[in-house]
Write a protein that binds this DNA or RNA. Structure first.
Lengths: 119, 119
DNA sequence: GTTACAATTGATCATGCGTTCAACTATAAT
DNA sequence: ATTATAGTTGAACGCATGATCAATTGTAAC
């Protein structure tokens, strides 16, 4: 009579002391998802171009659409996500809406990523 | 006879000097997509947990599966992506495969994101 | 008011992506 | 060689997501 333990494979060699130590120090779910969301908003080429453009000068939606070669609607949708994650802020002037980066943390983040890419 | 310029709206108020300046300084497509890919690989909670776990100690796939509470298969798939982006490296020992972070840039990147999140 | 236009918003569609499942590979022990 | 197990791989499924289109809002000019 052979032992048909189908499930044990998942647990046999687990080093529970290691796992325990790691689990203790892992950040909570809230923090993890916040971090993931921040990375996700920068994980799209279009949004990245928008952020890089705004790191140089303040630009209106129309200018941004020209820079990234997409419709104003598409750009507006992406700007909504960037606003949601507090990466950009805006200022209305007449019919135009001018966007700029919220702070310099964003550029630091991109620089950090850039230094990982070249290597 | 009214001028039916449907397309002009996209171009009328564009500040071409601004757009020109910005376009000149924007990184090339290759660099942008490389950056975006780096952010994307960190934009998933599971992968982020894996990376954070590996920033503490070297762990085998089995341990990682226990930590993130997912199947070994799921973890293996994510590790493949992390390997592809050079975030982790591995070492085989007997039947086990131990993973660790490739370098410390990765942690710096996560710290940079974390400092943007709390604010 | 009416017209013109910058920008936002919601719906739709196609594509991308994370997990699961099943099949397979590799290593170790008997 | 056979058995057991750690890990990988490919297919499939369902959900998320980015671009487009149409409709709408808000502001300025007439």
């Amino acid at each position: 009579m052979k032992k048909t333990n189908v499930e044990t494979c998942q647990v046999t060699v687990v080093d529970h002391r290691k796992v325990g130590r790691v689990n203790e120090r892992l950040p909570g779910n809230r923090h993890i998802t916040d971090l993931a969301e921040t990375f996700k908003v920068l994980s799209d080429p279009t949004r990245l171009r928008i952020v890089l453009a705004l790191s140089m000068e303040e630009l209106c939606v129309c200018d941004l659409a020209t820079v990234v070669k997409l419709s104003i609607s598409a750009v507006s949708h992406q700007l909504r996500l960037l606003k949601g994650r507090k990466l950009v802020v805006f200022r209305k002037q007449g019919k135009q809406v001018y966007y700029r980066l919220d702070d310099d943390h964003v550029i630091d983040l991109i620089h950090a990523a850039a230094s990982h890419v070249r290597e």
